[in-house]
Computed example of a mutant assay.
Amino acid sequence: MHVAIGSTNPVKVAAVERVLPDAECSAVAVDSGVPEQPWGRAETVRGARNRAAAALSATDAQFGVGIEGGVAARDTPGGLWLVMWAAVTDGTDTHLGAGPSIRLPEPVAERLRDGDELGPVLDDELGREELAKQEGAIGVYTAGRVSRTDALVDAVAGAFGPFLR
């Protein structure tokens, strides 16, 4: 099976490779079609769908995979939440899967509402460089118990499931 991943981000590639260890995976730099910091589930899902479709059309793969992380406000239980979605398409059907969702601390949420992006905010808040590309918010706020790759594996497995049964 040949799978095109709509990102060259090593964490996203590793997540797909974990779900499909026997697949030939090709990482393809594509535009998500959404802002660098997606807001809401709809925009985050749209980014994942766009990445999957663009990756598939840029290659001769059987499947295109798109992964997108964003933030979404919730009325219940309230707050601003980290969300992650994956989309898988074969060119005819597209299926979605979600990763875990965690509430962001209010000081971080306030900065995001003011227009900042999550990765740089975390780097600044925690005094570390390139955090978003390494452990990500999920790793920070679970004290490393869930890695960014682990979280994305759940989303990718959920999206791929209907194609693999």
Rank of each mutant, 00 (worst) to 15 (best):
D90E: 09
V88K: 04
L96C: 05
R74K: 15
W81N: 10
V83F: 05
A72Q: 08
I67G: 04
G69N: 14
V71M: 00
L96E: 15
L80C: 08
T92V: 15
T94R: 04
P77Q: 03
W85P: 02
G70S: 03
T76K: 07
W81L: 05
M84H: 11
T94V: 14
R74C: 03
A98E: 14
V71R: 06
A72C: 12
T89S: 14
L82W: 08
M84I: 13
D90I: 08
A73K: 01
H95G: 02
L80F: 06
H95E: 14
G70D: 01
T76V: 13
D93T: 15
A87D: 09
T94Q: 15
G78Q: 07
V88T: 06
G69I: 00
E68L: 04
A98G: 06
I67C: 12
T94L: 15
G79L: 06
L96H: 06
I67H: 09
G78R: 13
G97L: 06
G70C: 04
G70F: 04
T92A: 15
A72I: 00
L82T: 03
W81H: 14
A72N: 13
D90Q: 09
H95R: 14
A86G: 01
L96T: 09
T92W: 13
A87I: 02
V83Q: 05
G79R: 10
W81G: 04
L82D: 13
I67Y: 09
I67R: 02
A73R: 10
G91A: 12
G78C: 07
G91H: 10
L96Y: 10
L80M: 14
M84C: 15
G97S: 11
R74A: 05
I67W: 08
P77E: 02
H95S: 14
T76E: 15
G79V: 08
G79A: 10
T94I: 15
P77N: 08
M84T: 15
G97F: 06
G78H: 05
G78V: 03
D75E: 12
A98R: 11
G79P: 13
D75L: 07
A98S: 13
I67E: 07
A87E: 12
A72H: 11
W81C: 03
T92R: 15
A86Q: 03
L80I: 12
L80V: 14
R74T: 02
G69D: 05
D93C: 11
E68Q: 11
A86V: 00
W81M: 05
L80R: 11
I67D: 09
W85L: 01
G91V: 12
D90M: 10
